[in-house]
Design a protein around this nucleic acid. Structure first.
Lengths: 235, 235
DNA sequence: GCTAGTGATGTGTGATCACAGTTAGGGCCG
DNA sequence: CGGCCCTAACTGTGATCACACATCACTAGC
């Protein structure tokens, strides 16, 4: 047992399956809005693009279908769901309720370190939004960072996972829009809401944090609905 | 086109894949507590039991793993997760917050028909709980019925789906206990809480409905924690 | 007597093949 | 020239095979 101590220092080899890697890749595509509602997805084509067999893609897609982030049409074609305006409104309302609750708990429970992480994320987003010609893709990523820095501070892991899934469903709509029209940032509404969230969490003011997060979500939802890109009638 | 009207009356043939059927079968096993935490699941064995190939089972299991209702150990063994006491507490707290919120919305928005459905479910559960020798399996099913009758009335489909997933995670613990010890019903706490929920929803009293649902969840959680079947230290 | 190595068995994962079904396009007939 | 049909390519689903790995019982060695 001479090497007992040396062995203890070995890092665990992380074992990732191809399915997981594929799932992450597709999730990222969806969450960042690079896959738009209505886009079709071929198992074989994506498998070829990733350099794997169809098997891992099947498992990843079936998980995303279970999450509601993808759907298989009765034609058996896999595509990004086209949400009705009513469906989008219900999703936004659910997000306001749940993410607001998470923000409220975060305000009450956050540690110093978590607060610092939120501060950093907020500063990074503000810096980008106020720059000359904001990059849509980066804005999407930084917006996600700040939101999840807040949700990580709520202390309830299951709640954080639930929110991650909600973002997967809303991502293609929200972020496609933000990607395509980063000019929306110039209205400054997002920056203002984020500042309100940060201030409320600093002050340990739960209701204010919930209201600010809900307002942030509502602002974006109203903006997208007002643009009228979503159909009103379910097919 | 003489038969246009006749054709219009034909019900859609529902196309279910074997994967979905398998998923439902396994979900039912989990939700009803017939699969206990720690139980291992072999793909080949369950495939043989269901009379299908391993493929559908793989997809169903991978979805359940994504939901957190199953887990694959680093040994590559599929099993029902063994939750720590802390994890169970976090899950219960999340449920109290989310399901309470759903109940509150249900109180505000319920239609007459939905209210009637809740009444029927509550009556059925009460009848069983007050019977001589209550059947554990039936109690599990009826308890589920009443809760989801409430959540169906909240008007937010995404919220209902989230709760269904939470139940999948909590099912093995909660319902294994209720199945094994239906005598718990004799304490009457569940019946009382359900009555409170119903009364609050009848009176369109949102906060009271949320409190009653949260209390119902908390009662069961405290009871199970007090029994001490869950380990305190994560392995 | 106890530990370390070795084999058989079963595990999940991934690739490949087979199939029913759909879709799109080109050629034939009116 | 326009409409229909038929074919060929492609879709997801399911089965089967191949493989690396984990587990457990067993035996040989110290």
């Amino acid at each position: 047992m001479n090497s007992r101590t040396a062995l203890a220092e070995l890092p665990q080899i992380e074992r990732r399956t191809l399915s997981e890697t594929t799932y992450d890749a597709l999730s990222d595509l969806l969450a960042s809005g690079r896959l738009a509602p209505g886009d079709r997805l071929s198992l074989r084509q994506t498998a070829a693009a990733l350099g794997v067999s169809v098997m891992p893609v099947r498992e990843a897609v079936s998980r995303l279908v279970a999450d509601g982030a993808l759907e298989v049409a009765p034609n058996r074609a896999v595509r990004v769901p086209i949400m009705s305006a009513a469906g989008f409104r219900a999703l936004a309302e659910t997000r306001m309720a749940i993410e607001g609750m998470a923000a409220s708990r975060a305000a009450a429970q956050r540690s110093q370190g978590q607060l610092a992480a939120i501060r950093r994320a907020e500063a990074a987003f503000r810096l980008l939004a106020e720059s000359e010609r904001p990059d849509g893709a980066r804005a999407v990523a930084l917006n996600r960072d700040i939101h999840f820095a807040v949700y990580a501070a709520c202390g309830l892991d299951p709640l954080r996972e639930i929110i991650a899934r909600l973002w997967l469903k809303a991502g293609p709509i929200i972020n496609l829009d933000l990607r395509a029209h980063p000019a929306r940032l110039e209205r400054g509404s997002a920056v203002r809401r984020h500042a309100e969230v940060l201030a409320a969490i600093e002050a340990r003011n739960g209701p204010a944090a919930a209201a600010a997060i809900a307002a942030d979500i509502d602002d974006a939802a109203q903006f997208i609905l007002s643009r009228g890109g979503l159909r009103d009638e379910p097919s």
